[in-house]
Amino acid sequence: MPEHDMPDPDSAKCNGQRRGLLRFFSGIFRARTGRYTLAALVFAAGSAAAININTQIYNPETRQWEQYDPNRAIRYFQQHGQTPAAFQRKIVTFRTAEKPGTVVIDGDKHFLYVVLPNFQAVRYGIGVGREGFGWAGIVNVGRKAEWPVWTPPAEMVARDPKAAKYAGGMPGGPDNPLGPRALYLYEGNKDSIYRIHGTTEPWSIGLNVSSGCIRLHNDDIVDLYERVEVGAKVIVLMQGAALYKGV
């Protein structure tokens, strides 16, 4: 399914995205001048519909801009039945001073780590929405939810009849774009509007091409949910600021 037909998976974030359209540009400016800002580089929910075939994604491995073709990612997933091995959950060495239970998100590499004792971590592959890039910061898990309700933002309800029928909230379930679990990221006691959640688009793991925040395989978000406590620190690392062009 082309991305622009997908409902945006998180109402609070989507509201933030709308407000964040201008911040998208100011975010790039700040990053260019070298200051990472949390909640910068936010892509407006409304503009998800405007994504076009000229979108390119920067691949940090090859240091090349590559044409984004969602169908290619879908085909890969259908052929292999899973995402590339690098993005499958595994235990890795992770030497850090951060305490076990801390979450580290490395958007460049499309990895999310949960620190374990003895310099180890669980590493998950992640898909990162455009709004997930361009900010760095330290937040915390303010709350967790099983089978979270997804409520489309008002602007999506207005423009998308499919979303409109869920204006009052889409119950949790296999078709819910948040997937089976969600971790809500807070700054202190305040909702940051960012979430870590599951996905109905497993082919998007390892890419930063989909709408949504930080998404994991549904099996992985369930695993992560069990490992991370409310109050856990979440460190979002610095990363390239302009990972898209043509959008």
Partner: peptide
């Protein structure tokens, strides 16, 4: 780039 040390140090870990 300017950012708090906590992020930079964890970036080294990662």
């Amino acid at each position: 780039l300017e950012a708090p040390e906590a992020i930079a140090v964890t970036a080294i870990d990662a």
